[in-house]
Write a protein that binds this DNA or RNA. Sequence first.
DNA 1: TTAATAACAATAATTATTACTGTTTTATTA
DNA 2: TAATAAAACAGTAATAATTATTGTTATTAA
Lengths: 147, 147
Amino acid sequence: MTTLKYSRQREAIKDFLAGRKDHPTADTVYTNMRGQFPNISLGTVYRNLALLSEIGEIAKISTGEGAERFDGNPVDHYHFVCTGCHSVSDLEMPEIAHINILAGQNFDGEIKGHVAYFYGLCGDCARKQKASHAKKSKQDTIFQKIR
Amino acid sequence: MTTLKYSRQREAIKDFLAGRKDHPTADTVYTNMRGQFPNISLGTVYRNLALLSEIGEIAKISTGEGAERFDGNPVDHYHFVCTGCHSVSDLEMPEIAHINILAGQNFDGEIKGHVAYFYGLCGDCARKQKASHAKKSKQDTIFQKIR
DNA sequence: TTAATAACAATAATTATTACTGTTTTATTA
DNA sequence: TAATAAAACAGTAATAATTATTGTTATTAA
């Protein structure tokens, strides 16, 4: 059993995340922290991100591609991952907690919750793809991918 | 544009995964493959796992804890991750594709799909916890966690 | 059967993350 | 307010997972 002591670095990391809408990686947090704390260590960033998410003051986001990301908003909500630019954004959508019940229907253990990531193209990437579609459609039929 | 050539190693990896109900990591696949191919390289395993999941013959599972896992069954379905023993198992549950619609309601881009991981305690871990609950409940009240 | 190249084994390199060590900060108490 | 204990730190080393490189072998098409 251990006690938590205040640290300026930890507070700064929490504040930094609270002020961001994207969902930065540990490395991005580190780079930005160096403005306020030129000597901050990457290990300090990792340690505090782990600690803050353990105590539920931030949330860890594992998209399955690239490094872990962190969200200053610890309240449960869903995320969208763009397969084009790899950005991660929040989704405003109704709770779908009922899917835990569905999941538990034919299951032996105890379902306590779920995480879900929606994927597709973000607004910007969707528009870019449409714009370039006309040009490329001919090429696509000639050089079709085999795999 | 590149063409796919047959390889015994790739077939063996695919067959191995098809015969498993758990969802092995690259390293587990590697260890098992060495029975058939004593000189197989870990790089070969990684390359073929990536290739097979790109062409949709297997599925990659990113639980967010530990290494990537692979599923010989590429048909969309949901997974359960036990927070006790970290095992990953399949869930038999109805499709919940409608949540893509919900997710797209207030969203600018195009939602193409989702992945979801349910978590909690598997049957074995749930029973173990119940069994040890009586003994530990007193201790828990004395040594309560602060963080 | 040869020629082109995908796939291989072996290994080096990279990326993301965690652990260690000696020093500094914070919080408690004399 | 000064002394003490321990959490947190910076700096750095180490680890785990994965990807890239290189020279060789296997597969496929001509």
